[in-house]
């Protein structure tokens, strides 16, 4: 278990390091930083001075390690647009995105796992067909279209819920449905397939032969083993949701991390973009690492393989 964990930790660290290089390159491809910082009215001499002041005339590798050193201390420099540090911007926006992601994940699991179990228990019946059909349809509906449709129906026509913003918990309902929708097909398919596999195993036949109630067999014996791969997938999906929330935040005007990144891209505010890319990637790496370890802990076959 220890060697498995340390090996995974090493991979996670090196992936995070590689991602940091990508994020750094992204900033430097965005154009001449000295000109961007100096603003449109700066003279050539002023730009040169800023170039020297910010260390932009040094070799690119030195700049990278310098940037990485600061990033490791949660210092991502200043935004070009806001008179604020990137870190304080990110910290003020992160809660919205994390809340949205967490609710979306919870919603999708609550819908997808029971649906998957039902589809497996009643496999090759109309219930199974309907569940799979729902998945195929679900995958074809883009999240932003779903978000707009939800706004039109529940916010504009029925007036049940607010259109946009983050003022109260009610504001999170529609965006969470739209964002959680995306994860439902994958989670459902995985829990259905896991359940099908477990249900055909010997120990389930034994449990049934003992005369246990079908509900006890399914919930207590089968689901526990079938749910293991879903844990890993849920972690991965949470990472995808944090990245994908940019679209939903734009649709619902939510001032989260994605909205910040969207605005920053449109304004060429690349220190912010870079920081958001790096933070989301590191969160994803950490989540997959935790999921791997949790999986290995729950299922000894994985860590021995």
């Amino acid at each position: 278990m220890l060697s498995f964990t340390s090996q995974r930790l090493l991979v996670a660290f090196s992936v995070a390091l590689t991602v940091s290089i990508v994020a750094f390159v992204l900033l430097h491809l965005s154009g001449d930083l000295a000109t961007a910082i100096a603003g449109p009215e700066a003279t050539v001499a002023q730009v040169a001075e800023i170039r020297h002041q910010f260390g932009l005339d040094r070799p690119i590798t030195a700049q990278y390690f310098d940037w990485l050193w600061h990033a490791l201390h949660f210092d991502f420099g200043n935004s070009f647009y806001y008179r604020d540090t990137v870190v304080s911007l990110v910290v003020s926006r992160l809660p919205v995105t994390l809340t949205l992601g967490a609710i979306s994940l919870a919603l999708s699991l609550v819908v997808a796992v029971p649906l998957g179990v039902l589809a497996a228990v009643y496999s090759d019946t109309i219930i199974d067909r309907l569940a799979l059909g729902f998945c195929v349809l679900g995958q074809a509906v883009p999240t932003f279209c779903l978000g707009l449709v939800l706004i039109i129906v529940f916010a504009v026509q029925l007036r049940w819920l607010p259109v946009s913003g983050t003022a109260s918990w009610k504001n999170y309902i529609l965006p969470s449905i739209a964002l959680g929708w995306y994860a439902v097909p994958a989670v459902m398919r995985l829990s259905r397939n896991g359940m099908l596999e477990v249900l055909s195993s010997d120990y389930i036949r034994t449990a049934r032969a003992k005369g246990l109630q079908p509900s006890v067999v399914i919930l207590k014996h089968a689901l526990r083993n079938a749910i293991i791969p879903v844990v890993a997938l849920a972690a991965v999906q949470f990472g995808f949701m944090l990245g994908g929330s940019i679209v939903i935040e734009a649709v619902f005007n939510m001032q989260g991390l994605g909205y910040l990144a969207w605005e920053a891209i449109a304004r060429n505010d690349f220190p912010v973009v870079q920081a958001v890319v790096l933070i989301l990637a590191v969160i994803y790496v950490a989540l997959t690492f935790l999921a791997d370890v949790a999986n290995a802990f729950l299922d000894p076959r994985i860590r021995l393989a």
């Binding site: 991602v19 992204l26 994908g244 891209i265 989301l280 790496v285």
Partner: peptide
């Protein structure tokens, strides 16, 4: 598999938006 893991760690929509802008 290392390259694939790294690629999967990048948030697609965000990186696509930023690169498209670039």
């Amino acid at each position: 598999s290392y390259i694939v893991t790294t690629r999967l760690a990048l948030p697609v929509v965000l990186v696509a938006l930023a690169s498209a802008a670039l």
